[in-house]
């Protein structure tokens, strides 16, 4: 007897259609526009003549310099997020008393859920030369703050804004390793560092990759942080793309920039992934425990 079953595709169909119409189609259109041109002062785009000219325009020094600066900030920011976030996640998942863990997670989630722009404005207030921190420094005889609207301020802002995205997957990864495995490692005579190096880190590797990509990808496209904290000096690629659509009204060039940005993000994310894979080579050699092979279950 055949039961009447709703095929899965039918249930997922509304979401399919929705994403096809409002995600795939728009990106496809942008791809198409990127081969067009801007007709005159008041038009935004025209596609009756198709060419690669906009891509050549993208590769001018202005865009290239901004792109290198963006990449620089994205890589430095991701590395800093990892260096700050990894010990934090390790502490939360392994060292902090288990009864604190829920509270600590909630505390990390609150900034993650506070509006991005608002958090960045908070830093603008803290760093501003008229702010209380600057005034406190001045009463102590130190010079007034001169950090706002520098590259350092942008870096601080992006590290701050994306840190929770690094901590959360790392926490999940460290938590997944679990106390019994670490205990087993110590019972078998491994020291603390040996346990960290040969058990905890290899098992947390997927979480590390996820954390790095979760920080790096949105960071490459971010421009709000740079606008608020970097002023004119903090130009990021996202800002250039946005300007083509919002002020210059040159959708053809903006589209070509956006497509270039997507390609760069995909390629560099793949490169970052490959680099992580290479760096973790010594770790993998000591990979002895697999969670799915029934060690913990």
């Amino acid at each position: 007897m055949r039961r009447l079953r709703l095929p899965g595709l039918a249930l997922a169909l509304p979401a399919w259609v929705w994403l096809a119409v409002f995600f795939i189609a728009p990106v496809a259109v942008v791809f198409w526009y990127s081969f067009g041109y801007k007709p005159g002062l008041f038009g935004t785009h025209a596609t009756d003549r198709l060419s690669f000219d906009r891509y050549l325009e993208v590769l001018t020094p202005t865009f290239f310099d901004t792109f290198v600066a963006t990449m620089n900030i994205a890589l430095t920011g991701t590395a800093l997020c990892f260096l700050i976030g990894a010990p934090m996640a390790y502490w939360m998942a392994v060292k902090a008393p288990p009864s604190w863990r829920g509270l600590l997670l909630a505390l990390v989630l609150v900034p993650f859920w506070t509006n991005f722009l608002v958090r960045t404005i908070g830093w603008q207030v803290i760093l501003s030369p008229e702010g209380w921190l600057s005034q406190a420094a001045q009463t102590l005889g130190l010079p007034a703050f001169d950090i706002l609207y520098t590259r350092g301020a942008v870096l601080l802002g992006v590290v701050y804004n994306y840190l929770p995205l690094m901590i959360l997957p790392l926490y999940v990864a460290f938590d997944r390793v679990g106390e019994p495995l670490r205990e087993a490692s110590r019972d078998l005579g491994a020291g603390r560092f040996r346990t960290l190096w040969r058990v905890t880190l290899p098992l947390a590797r997927p979480g590390i990759v996820v954390g790095v990509l979760l920080v790096y990808i949105p960071l490459m496209g971010d421009y709000i942080t740079a606008t608020v904290l970097g002023g004119a000096k903090g130009n990021m690629v996202g800002q250039l793309v946005a300007a083509q659509f919002q002020t210059a009204q040159n959708w053809a060039l903006g589209s070509a920039m956006a497509i270039t940005l997507i390609v760069i993000i995909v390629l560099s994310a793949a490169a970052v992934g490959a680099a992580l894979w290479l760096v973790s080579w010594p770790l993998r050699r000591s990979y002895r425990v697999r969670l799915d092979s029934g060690v913990t279950q």
Binding site: I84, M88, K95, V110, G122, V125, I126, P164
Partner: peptide, 18 residues
């Protein structure tokens, strides 16, 4: 532990300021 507390202070600083 000190690191963890410092990171939490860092995470909350701008929110508290706002």
């Amino acid at each position: 532990t000190v690191w963890g507390v410092l990171v939490l202070v860092f995470l909350f600083a701008p929110i508290i300021v706002i």
